[in-house]
Amino acid sequence: MSKKLIGEIETQNLNICYGKHCIIKNVNIKIPARQLTAIIGPSGCGKTTLLKSFNRLLEIRDDVKISGKILVDGNNILRSGLNVSDIRKKMGLLSQKPYPLPMSIYENVAYGIRIHNHIDSKKLENAVNNCLQEAGIWNEIRDRLHDPASGLSLGQQQRLCLARAIAVQPEVLLCDEPTSALDPISAQQIEKLLLKLKKEYTVVLVTHTLRQAKRVADYVIFLYFGEVIEHGPADKVFNNPKHPRTKAYMQGEIS
């Protein structure tokens, strides 16, 4: 048996319902490790719901029912009795709008590290600085590390959130339209970072701009009203869509 890369996600008969209304219907997909997977589809079709089920964030809302299996590296994370915070540690999240924690820039990154490891302040400082460098924001904020994070621009905040996410050394980065609230230049920076980070992490990117998916994705999942219509390697899906709905979406007939 060949050694698998870590960070592979697989779903089996996944159903997610809010009350009687089902958002995700019978989804069976395999997200390859250490690649950038884009989940595309029209708005309101359950992309974000699917993404947030991967780190069990849906549970903090009321009346959500999840059935089926989500396997991360072969382990079903929906099994009861698991330590949820360990699962979430493995899956970093980058949300639509940046939400810096109400602390300083430094503390934002140190927050997750402090929770999981007891390390001395010197090491902590190094770790935080490394994360900030990796997220490409270090140079802009190196001399105001202890200012409130909410004082940064939106684009900087988003990169800070990225630094915060990678600080706990996740295996997967879940990105929920991370560029939709940003200006084009910041969006481009984030995109570049994601391309760089996919060498170390599995990146799952929800996006509603087809062009972004075309630019960055290695693997594509097309979701339409809760169902997976088509999934496969990016060039295949984009250049040679099999399903008529996928074709229509690619050509801009449905958006």
Binding site: I60, S85, K89, K90, G92, L93, Q96, Y111, G112, V168
Partner: peptide, 16 residues
């Protein structure tokens, strides 16, 4: 408090 702020904290593996 916006749900996303809680999510941000939870998703780095913090407990509730």
């Amino acid at each position: 408090i916006p749900l996303e702020l809680k999510e941000a904290s939870l998703s780095v593996g913090a407990t509730k």
